[in-house]
């Protein structure tokens, strides 16, 4: 049994014919070719696959593509406008908020929601807000710094 799924990915309407078991992360990676959304675990712990679904951060490994039918999905590739970087992306670059880069797209997408909820989020709030994202390289220090700076720097 296959299903038609229509969704907007980074502002572009797309239509797919999928098995119901297809996960959103696999749809984005294999069907749309947006491989910026990485998959780091299989138990919904690591947050590498975080995307925005109707503006909210979700783990795309824990959403069926059929559940996303009709939704607007934003991935790391669609975060910035046509030119330049989103302020959170820029801040990760400025503050060495990444090393291997694998968790980075998920970190950035989660950071967008953290700052959306509170643009003035401080160190402790950001650390708490990252409870669903694992980084093995940075020790989080510069990720936290990047997010706090992006907020104070005026993402709003």
């Amino acid at each position: 049994m296959r299903h038609r799924v229509c969704l907007s990915v980074n502002g572009k309407a797309e239509e797919f014919d999928v098995e119901p078991r297809l996960l959103l992360c696999h749809l984005l990676r294999a069907y749309v070719g947006l491989t910026g959304t990485n998959i780091g675990c299989d138990t919904s712990q690591c947050g590498s696959c975080t995307v925005l679904m109707d503006g909210k951060a979700v783990k795309s490994c824990t959403v069926l593509a059929v559940q996303a039918d009709g939704c607007e999905v934003t991935t790391i590739e669609g975060l910035a406008g046509a030119d330049g970087l989103h302020p959170v992306q820029q801040s990760f670059w400025d503050h060495h908020g990444l090393q291997c880069g694998f968790c980075t797209p998920g970190m950035i997408m989660t950071a967008v929601e953290i700052l959306d909820r509170n643009p003035d989020a401080g160190d402790a709030e950001v650390r708490h807000g990252l409870e669903g994202n694992i980084c093995r390289c940075t020790g989080y220090e510069n990720i936290v710094k990047s997010i706090v700076a992006a907020g104070a720097g005026g993402t709003s």
Binding site: S44, G47, T50, K56, V58, T110, E113
Partner: peptide
């Protein structure tokens, strides 16, 4: 519960 992403879903 869980984390931001889990709470959103």
């Amino acid at each position: 519960i869980g984390d931001i992403q889990v709470r959103n879903r």
